[in-house]
Write a protein that binds this DNA or RNA. Structure first.
Lengths: 215, 215, 215, 215
DNA sequence: TATGAATGAGTGTTCATTCAT
DNA sequence: CATGAATGAACACTCATTCAT
């Protein structure tokens, strides 16, 4: 996944420190981005990670590089949620519901605006994980549509938009303020997704690409 | 509503410039806040309004005062949408749907995060318009629930959260990027609101006060 | 004294307003300069005088012109104090003491720093009143020296420096904070001025010109 | 006194730059405050110290923090003057005179208005040095009163007011303009302080606390 | 290599002065 | 002629990024 995974056999000791720093930075960055937003002071992230600011810059030459790593990290976790959901729920719509609520717990909504706009659509690492995510969510939805649980006029992009929008915290607020209600409104949206459709939707079904253009 | 509506017949001439500037500032502020967010440079707003920055400060001594006026302006328009919706649609759920889509067109979603947090809950002008909004939306929903169109386990706060979240643009993006799909996802949410309820919702119904605490 | 005293016979009515405005501005300026200092916002002076800011600028094209008028006004009052002191006190040193305490009451100390530095030494009105002040204070001091009350190694500039310095309020403070003690320290200084001299003074006696170079 | 005196032997190298900068900033601040006053542009201080403005802010997060350090620095030097004066002069009034002229040379007069008003009376460092100053000046004066050199109706506050007022430069002027005469007028004041008293003073003797309330 | 410090560009806000009514 | 409004320049302070140790 990461480009520094298996290469040089030398300097293994230094790497112990280095990778621990990387992880601490990414964790701190995720926290701070969720709380403060994409414009969070990088010094604050460094402080929260317990390192000097220049160390942060050594690991991630600019804000976008850091955001990229956070994106990779979070998408990997969301992918894992999808895999778990599919494995654990025999009913396809149940699996979809489980995935939606699980992705919300990964704070996808809080992080989408952070990532948004700064996205390098050609980044191979991101492309790979995105592709895997597309595949599994498409599979999840098609199963649910075939089983008659999910209305037929929706596509993966619709799901991701709903998750990211309905779970976004308000800026300047710690993420949890509305979170007591997040699952409630996701559930209302999921109820709207059930077959049979109760209305004719305007627009067209959103592909994952539509969503990715935004995020 | 506005304090400059019909009152003093004197000194209309001097006011001509001033009020035109005020209006231009508010319009520019709304635009810029929607596009850039609550931290938008005030100089940019001044530039967009075609005035000097100090003129902006003369009219609105600080950012919050400006945001307050934008809030008043937008809430007034949303109130008007609610009144229109109620008047024009004999079916109560239709009226509710019309209101929801109309409020989205007023960019409520874009402006909620702007207003959020900086809200002076004691401001009498804001309190008044908020109160009128509460009354009419409550009425709309209760009618729809009595007529069997709307599920009984939801309250006004749920509606406002949905509107504001599902219509929020991504930061750093002109508002319209997702807007082609906004009504689509609102419609999915509205489908989830229809009676009979297709699930048991977690949490409790949100009152308008719950929503206001956020916005 | 003023250059607008006796001239044009026309427009006497307008002048009534105009001169009342002038006086109110000067009074307000004196107050505000004493309270806030030489950098006081001119808008505050206009506000305190109950006029618009542009009216202030019409009367006094810039800060220095306003300060000049305040200087003239205050010096005229101090001159009057000197004349009164000389007339009322048979003993020359008593007269000097009376003058010193009286000048302090005119807030000379507060206003010297306002005036200082912006002085136009060629201004004929100021020159005239300055000259009259020099003459009378010199007379006061020479009498006191001849009568053996005042030590011989001091000159008018020494007196004025003492008054202005010992009565200066601290910046950012309303003038009166130390004022309970001003006369106390002036009195100590006056005790040091009495003959016979208790020390040999460093430097040379200050003329009024020495003082004027500062103020 | 200073928290960087003798303590940590580690990390002396990095500190070399930093402390040199701190010292240069304090020196420049003292200069500029004396010349321009408490409202001096901090950018000018940074420029004079030969550093970037943000470096100044890194060392002193706001104007008051900088003023505090200047106050500490200057008070320490004045305290040293008092100790020297007491040690070197067998006659108590001579010692007092030496202290007064010495404190004037430290530009106490110029800096009192800078410090004034922004004083945090609870600051422990400032409280400590203030206390030591009170003790030694009280001692100086009581000795001089016991030896019959100093009139009995004065107290430390009277001395400090005289020093600070008589040595204050005019704003907008380099401090030295009047300085040729400062010692002359201080000497006149000191002559007024000698026993026997030549008048009955109005008001009451000023304690150091009276003075501190101002500065 | 990791760090703390330095930097300069950017933003909010104030105020003296000018302009239009 | 008096006024309120408009203006731009100035300053405090923040933050991303670079440098020296």
């Amino acid at each position: 996944m990461s480009s520094t995974t298996a290469a040089e056999p030398r300097a293994p000791k230094l790497r112990a420190d280095a990778t621990r720093n990387r992880e601490r930075i990414i964790a701190a960055a995720r926290e701070v981005f969720v709380e403060v937003g994409a414009d969070a002071p990088l010094d604050e992230i460094a402080r929260r990670a317990g390192i000097g600011n220049a160390t942060l810059y050594r690991n991630f030459p600019n804000r976008d590089a850091l955001i990229r790593e956070v994106a990779l990290f979070v998408k990997a976790r969301i992918l894992a949620r999808a895999e778990t959901a599919m494995a654990e729920h025999p009913d396809a719509f149940d699996a979809l519901q489980s995935f939606v609520h699980g992705a919300a717990d990964e704070q996808l909504g809080a992080l989408c605006p952070v990532i948004s706009g700064r996205f390098d659509h050609n980044d191979p690492d991101l492309a790979e994980i995105r592709e895997r995510l597309v595949v599994i969510v498409t599979e999840l939805m098609e199963r649910a549509q075939r089983s008659g649980g999910l209305r037929p006029d929706v596509a993966p992009g619709d799901i991701f938009v709903a998750i990211s929008q309905l779970t976004r915290p308000l800026p300047g607020t710690a993420c949890l303020d509305l979170s007591g209600f997040v699952h409630r409104h996701l559930q209302l949206f999921l109820d709207g997704l059930r077959a049979p459709a109760r209305s004719t939707l305007p627009g067209r079904a959103l592909t994952f690409e539509d969503f990715q253009q935004q995020h």
